[in-house]
Amino acid sequence: MNSFARRAAASMAGLVVASALVTGCSSGPEEKDAAGAAEPGAPAAAAETPGERPSPVAAGAKALSVGQTGAFTAVDGEDDSKKTKMQVTVKSVKYATPADVGTTNEPEGQFVVLTLTIKNVGDKPGAFRPYGMMQWEDAETAAQDATTLETVEGQQVDAVYKPGQSATGGVVLDVVRRGGTVSYHDGIGSDPSFTVKMPK
């Protein structure tokens, strides 16, 4: 079984477990509204300031904020033994409605579009595969799968990057509520490759 097939099988197993946990622990409608529904007329985004340049993350920082850049190690997508250095810059975080992401599907919590620039700064190909590998959590709620099949217009960041290649695009997530953090895991059960602080 090749690396991609193993990752896909592992992702599906994780989704089945997450689905079972969510089904067993889902909240009623009265909690859903309090947990993350946007108020009409409320600001929907926390985004970069025009002309803002990405700033590096201070040593020891636990989570990236909008405008910050961090590094992580990725595998090449075909051979898990080949690793390379990648860079991620958080361009914006925008809470969204189903209409904002062009869907009629309702989120379980709150849609958010996380716009990232992913760049291969190493010397081998490296993959960024967010589906099934991004988790949301906060002080009250344990890590939950936040990925969706929804997409937004623009470049797709879910790709294999050759050295020097980059892409900027949005990843549509479904988080329990505003705030908390979103982490990318390059494998099931792995430590986070990077973490993004979500605005309230």
Rank of each mutant, 00 (worst) to 15 (best):
S3F: 13
S3P: 03
F4Q: 05
F4K: 10
F4E: 03
R6E: 13
R6I: 15
R6C: 11
R6S: 13
R7W: 13
R7G: 02
R7V: 04
R7Q: 12
A8F: 10
S11T: 09
G14C: 05
V17L: 14
S19E: 08
A20C: 08
L21H: 12
L21G: 08
V22K: 11
V22Y: 14
G24S: 11
C25G: 10
S26E: 05
P29K: 13
P29W: 11
K32F: 06
K32G: 06
K32S: 09
D33N: 07
G36M: 03
A37M: 10
P40W: 08
G41M: 11
G41R: 15
G41Q: 10
P43H: 12
P43R: 14
E48R: 15
T49W: 10
T49L: 12
E52R: 11
E52V: 02
R53A: 11
P54R: 14
P56F: 01
V57Q: 15
A59L: 04
G60T: 14
G67V: 07
G70L: 08
G70C: 09
F72K: 07
V75R: 05
G77L: 14
E78V: 13
D79N: 15
S81F: 11
K83I: 05
K83A: 04
M86V: 02
M86P: 02
T89E: 00
V90F: 07
S92W: 08
S92Q: 07
V93R: 02
K94D: 06
T97V: 02
P98W: 12
V101H: 14
G102F: 12
N105D: 15
E106H: 04
P107V: 09
P107Y: 11
E108D: 15
G109Y: 13
G109R: 09
Q110D: 07
Q110Y: 11
F111I: 06
V112N: 07
V113A: 15
L114W: 13
L114N: 13
L116P: 00
T117D: 03
T117N: 05
I118N: 00
N120L: 02
V121S: 07
G122Q: 04
D123H: 06
D123T: 13
D123S: 12
P125H: 05
P125Q: 09
F128E: 06
F128T: 10
R129F: 09
R129M: 09
Y131P: 04
M134V: 07
Q135H: 12
Q135S: 03
Q135V: 04
Q135N: 04
W136T: 06
E140G: 05
T141Y: 00
A142P: 05
A143G: 11
Q144E: 14
Q144L: 10
D145V: 04
T148A: 04
L149G: 15
E150R: 06
T151S: 14
V152D: 08
E153G: 15
G154M: 06
G154V: 06
Q156M: 05
V157N: 00
V157P: 02
D158L: 00
D158E: 13
V160L: 03
Y161L: 02
P163V: 09
G164P: 03
Q165S: 12
S166V: 00
A167Q: 08
A167E: 00
G169R: 03
G170N: 05
G170E: 00
V171P: 01
V172W: 01
V175M: 05
V176N: 01
R177F: 00
R178Q: 08
D186H: 12
D186Q: 12
G187Q: 09
I188L: 11
G189Y: 00
S190N: 06
D191I: 14
F194L: 09
T195I: 01
P199K: 03
